[in-house]
């Protein structure tokens, strides 16, 4: 649902083409400082707050994971 927006955002930081399940952290596409940009992107674009308990790499590791995370937050399931 949010994949296009996520892809557009990631293109600003990752020049290689990546598939929706590719792990951007363990794949070395971004370093751990990128997490700040990612959290800000999610909060500012989707009008939600990333909480302490949300800081799990599984929520942010790929386009699909981020998409699922945003959808779950929007649905109030997190």
């Amino acid at each position: 649902m949010y994949r296009d927006t996520i892809r557009t955002f990631l293109k600003n930081y990752i020049s290689d083409s990546i598939n929706d399940d590719q792990d951007i952290f363990s794949g070395g596409y971004v370093n751990s400082l990128f997490a700040t940009q990612l959290v800000l992107f999610i909060e500012e674009n989707f009008d939600l707050t990333v909480e302490s308990e949300d800081l799990n790499l599984d929520n942010f590791k790929s386009i699909n994971a981020i998409n699922f995370f945003i959808a779950a937050k929007k649905d109030g399931k997190r």
């Binding site: 400082l33 997490a35 800081l55 790499l57």
Partner: peptide
Amino acid sequence: IIGGIGFGLAPVGT
């Protein structure tokens, strides 16, 4: 641990 594992430098430290 503050924040999650792997999130120490960012966004916690930043």
